[in-house]
Every structure is written in structure tokens, then in C-alpha cells.
Design a protein around this nucleic acid. Sequence first.
RNA 1: GGAGGGGUGGGUGAGUGGUUAAAGCCACCAGACUGUAAAUCUGGCGUCCGGAAGGACUUCGCAGGUUCGAAUCCUGCCCCCUCCA
Length: 400
Amino acid sequence: MTAPAFTFQVQHRDGSARSGQFATPHGSVETPIFMPVATQATIKTLTPHEVMDLGAQIVLGNAYHLYLRPGVETVNRLGGLHQFMRWPRPILTDSGGFQAFSMGAFRRVDDDHIRFRSHIDGSEHIFTPELAISNQQGLGADIIMCLDQCIEYGAERPEVEKAMDRTHRWARLCYDAHYNEPEPTYADNARRQALFGIVQGGTFPDLRQRSAEFIVSIPFPGYAIGGLAVGESKAQMYETTQQVTELLPGDKPRYLMGVGSPEDLVEGVSQGVDMFDCVLPTRVARNGALFTRTGRVNIANRRFAEQDAPLEEDCSCYACENFTAAYLWHLFKAKEVLGLRLASVHNLHFILRLMEGMRQSILEDRFDSFRRDFHDTYRPTDEATRQRQKEKWLAARGGV
RNA sequence: GGAGGGGUGGGUGAGUGGUUAAAGCCACCAGACUGUAAAUCUGGCGUCCGGAAGGACUUCGCAGGUUCGAAUCCUGCCCCCUCCA
């Protein structure tokens, strides 16, 4: 059995970069694509209408969060995730594997399951590969993900290898649960959903290779690269991405999970990645950091207090077309929710336009110069600063 | 007129002889955020020099005093609040 409702075609290649299209029961998506993150069935602060106006073609939801609240059964009874959140276009759900990584002390990973304590009420829950699949079937996204084990950067090799082996075992179980289960609980959904496999292996090239080969041996309709952007250097991340994309089949979509920043998206596309998702644009927006063509900027900085002009003159987003930077500054200082909304609009607009620009340049065989131009003008955050702040952040959080 | 309480750094508010350039919170300034436990977190925040360590100087209503040493004790003055008449 295969996934009949999901198809993917590469339309054009320009170097390693490629543009393509995939079709789902809720419409087709042009790649390379960025998927805004709607963890709890909402792109934080925005209405679906606004997200569509921004040109988002597909969004990502999270099975762990929705399983805890409002519950898979509930969403299913209310018509499924699309209907529930009134998002008519494609949706991809993540399995909850990432939460086993990010929730630190709230979870324990064993060979055949992940044991969580709910961050909401402390109650205990177990995710098996089979349950991760049936949860996602109940939610009804167009693309669902295998349960995997993501591991923090800096972990010892044996630990990384163990997590990878689990991820492989679980991938097999997920595949069987999704494609070979004769009577799935949510059969209608199950039949039209595509299940993607996930490659792990940390930053160890030989593990990544083994992982890619193993995962590719299972005929998933798409393949994801997981376990990156978790603390390794950009160079390591780019190397690993490059290595893995080369091992993935050319005729299936490649999804780099949890990435990323503008510069990472450009690099990812250059290495042949087709799909991305990341909380960064929206999260950072809520904290006042806005993307501009030259780099990130904090709208709450004093220097914007009296800027009687848009943040970016030539930006065509709703925020820049209608408001001055001084107004955005004021909204952030006054902690008005509109500030969070306008900032989210601006950043998603920036990222989605960036993706469109890349797609267009690939179609016109000028991706290299697009990429060069981007790097010439966009200055990313200094890596040493990021590392330092990251450590402080983790220390304050109690650490992953 | 009587009784009591109080005046601390931009605000609020701890501190009642040395460990105090003075807690915490707010405001302010800056930085971070990558499959969202995140409208969060981290620094800085009297002045001057220094990248920092550190050093110098000036601060707790005002003026005197006691003491080796005072935001803290004493005296006088100014101002504010509560209650009684």
C-alpha cells in the first residue's frame, strides 16, 4: 500500500537547489516552502485569514500539544484539525518527538516509548510509535511525521547512536502502523495522509549516513532531516544537511525540521531542501525582533522611537505599508497585542517572500546570484553571542 | 492645639552602627530566541577611568553632632500622612 493522495514532482533544478510541487487532499504546495508553526492549532496572534493573505501554503501543528489539549478525540469529533482551526490548506503535524527533547525533566525516553509528564497538569502519558501515528490520524493533517528521538547537541556518541537506533525502530513501526494496519481507528484520515520518515544521527557523519540509508530503505513518500539546529554550529548544521540531502532520493520531498533563520533557509535550499518549518520568525517577532534585508533589528530599541517611516520602506507587508516604525515601537513599549501581531505579520511576510524569491530564482536558473546577493546584504547574528545567550537561557530554564 | 507615623537611588520599597553604591519590583538601555513548557530569558542601570578585573569620587529631606566607622544613634530645622480636638 502507498499514499495515493500525496504526490511530489521536482519541476526544476538549479545546482543542488530545486523547485517543485506536492499535492495533498487540501491542495498543492509549491516548493521550496516554509511552513509557519501552529503548535496549538494557531499561528500565535494571527487569524487563518491573515496567514493565508501572507501567502502561507501549509502550516505545522503539533500532535503532542493537541493530544494533551483539547485532545485528539475532541479535534476529530469537531471535524478534524483543518475544520477545527479553520485552515483549509494543507497541514503537517509533528509527532511529539521533539517535545521529548525540549521538555527536559518532564520526559523519559525508553526503547519502545516516550513517557511524558504533562506540562499542563503533571499527569503522565506514554507515546509509542503506534500511538503517535493514531494521534496524528485522528487529527487529520495531510502530512504526518514518525515518532523520533531528537537528541541535544553535545551528547556522547553512544547516546546519539542509541537515539538513532530507536528512531529507526520506531520508523518501521510507524510505517507499519500507518500503511499496513488493516483497521486503523481513524481509517478515513489514515488513507489519505502521507507519513514522512526522519533521519537522525546528530553531527556524526557515519551515523547520519547509516540513518539516511536505513530510513530511505523504507518507502516513505517524504524524508525529513531531524535533530539539527539544536546547538551545533552553523557550519556543522550545513555540513550535515548537505551530507544527508545527497543520500536522500531525488524524487521525494526533503524536509529540514525546525529550520530556520533567513540565512539557514537560503543555505538549506541551496543544498536541495524542499520544506522547512520554524518557530523563529513568529517567536522572535513577539519579542520585538524583526527581519530586515540587512539583518535583524529590535523594534523596541530607542532609535525607532521617532522614526516617522516604515521599518522598511520597500516592504510590502501590512505592517510596513500602514504604520511607521515609531508606531510599532510604541506598541511594543506599551505592550499592546497589536504590536505582537504586526511583528508576526512582518516576519512571516519576510520569510515567505524570501522563499518565493528563492523559488523564482531557481526557476530562472539564477539561484546562485540570488544567494550571493542575500549574503552580501543580510548580516546574521554573531555566532559567539548566540552561544553565550543560549547557555544562559538553558541555565535559566533548568536545562535540556 | 494634642497623639502617632514617615521623608532612601527615575518610581515603588527593603534596610535601623561596619559584610551598603544601598535588596526586590517597575521603568529605562542593550542582547538572545531555530520540528513553541517562550508576549520569554539574559545582561546593564549614581558619576568618572577601564575590554574586564578593578580603582577614584559623590549619595539615603537639610544643618550640625556622637563614633575608629552613620542611611542607620543624638540635637535643631523643613516637609508629608493618619487620628483626636
